[in-house]
């Protein structure tokens, strides 16, 4: 029995933090070692709940000694600084998506991990979704021939707190929800998006960031993808949102409703119905893959570079919304 990979969580700002913490406690040969948070009350409560030490100060000399890897679930714009610090300390990093809020930050994170020789993974759990994997296999097996066009959605409800703060989130629905679909399609198509057109608005919630958008993304091969990443699901919607694809190819069409494994619950009281998902836990698979990548010194399913590529599409979408024309995706 080898020693477990000890992971610290850096910030519990993100709504996904608890899912990753739960997964870390379930994965064999992994351990949730500590939690740091710049919000001490939030961090202490989290640490108490999981019965792990709370790190008040990451700059304390001994702070980094107690773990091998970090999971960064801070606000988006704070990913980069935490990642750079972790790389300097020689720790492996799993970073919540979007990887960063600027292409410069993302490039610096990728370079720092390369220099330090540590694993940098981007949290794209969809790569571990069983329905999504089945579609990958269908495409790889030639089941729909050559892919021609894709319709996609990654709808959500309006998220809480800092997600609506442009300085911390780096954007709204486009920043939050473009990257999942882009990463899935880069994986499926083994191709890169080269251009994007976007129309955005904040009409749903009248907040400081975009909550409605329609994107059109063109891949190098000529595949055209339309994407609706909007926070357009009302509070009464029976699930948090969705991720759907309809992929048309020369020999057929395949559809994915990644959260379509669901049971409907109608409550006795006068309240909205709910969709109870029964799909396999993709977050658990994500953490399992990260821990295995660290242990085996191999690349994770989605690397920092993958995170940077997906981020670049969201940033180019904002540039397009500003210019009113399609924009080339850099880098």
């Amino acid at each position: 029995m080898t020693a477990p990979i000890r992971c610290a969580i850096l910030s519990s700002a993100h709504v996904h933090t608890a899912a990753y913490a739960d997964a870390l406690r379930q994965v064999p040969n992994a351990a949730l070692a500590a939690i740091w948070d710049d919000n001490a009350d939030r961090g202490r409560a989290f640490a108490d709940h999981y019965n792990v030490p709370f790190l008040a100060d990451l700059r304390a000399p001994a702070a980094w000694d107690e773990f091998d890897a970090v999971v960064i679930t801070s606000e988006n714009s704070r990913h980069a600084a935490l990642c750079l610090e972790a790389c300097r300390a020689g720790k492996h990093v799993l970073c919540e998506k979007p990887l960063a809020t600027t292409n410069e930050d993302a490039a610096a994170m990728v370079a720092a991990a390369d220099t330090a020789g540590v694993v940098l993974a981007t949290a794209f759990p969809m790569r571990h979704s069983l329905p999504a994997i089945a579609v990958k296999r269908t495409i790889s097996d030639g089941g729909i021939g050559e892919v021609l066009a894709v319709r996609s959605t990654n709808h959500g409800k309006m998220p809480p707190g800092w997600f609506r703060d442009p300085a911390l989130a780096g954007g709204g629905a486009v920043m939050d929800h473009t990257v999942h679909v882009v990463d899935l399609l880069r994986w499926y198509l083994e191709d890169e998006p080269v251009e994007v057109y976007a129309e955005i608005s904040n009409g749903f919630h009248h907040i400081a960031v975009d909550d409605a958008a329609f994107l059109t993304i063109t891949f190098r091969s000529g595949v055209v993808v339309t994407l609706d990443p909007s926070w357009s699901r009302p509070a009464s919607f029976p699930m948090w949102g969705d991720l759907t694809l309809e992929i048309a190819g020369t020999k057929g069409t395949v559809g994915l409703d990644a959260f379509g494994q669901k049971v409907v619950r109608y409550p006795a009281e006068n309240a909205p119905s709910e969709w109870l998902g029964y799909g396999a836990d993709a977050d658990l698979a994500l953490i399992t893959d990260f821990v295995a990548a660290v242990r085996e010194r191999r690349a994770p399913a989605a690397t920092g570079r993958d995170g940077a590529r997906a981020l670049a599409v969201a940033l180019a979408a904002y540039a397009s919304a500003k210019s009113g024309q399609p924009e080339v995706i850099v880098p």
Binding site: L148, A149, T216, V224, A248
Partner: peptide, 23 residues
């Protein structure tokens, strides 16, 4: 997106901004 081989496939995709601001 339009192809005629091996089967006829045509897909048009349009994004509209209305003067009201709706999309």
């Amino acid at each position: 997106v339009q192809r005629f081989e091996p089967r006829a496939f045509t897909q048009g995709m349009a994004t509209i901004r209305h003067t009201s601001g709706a999309l």
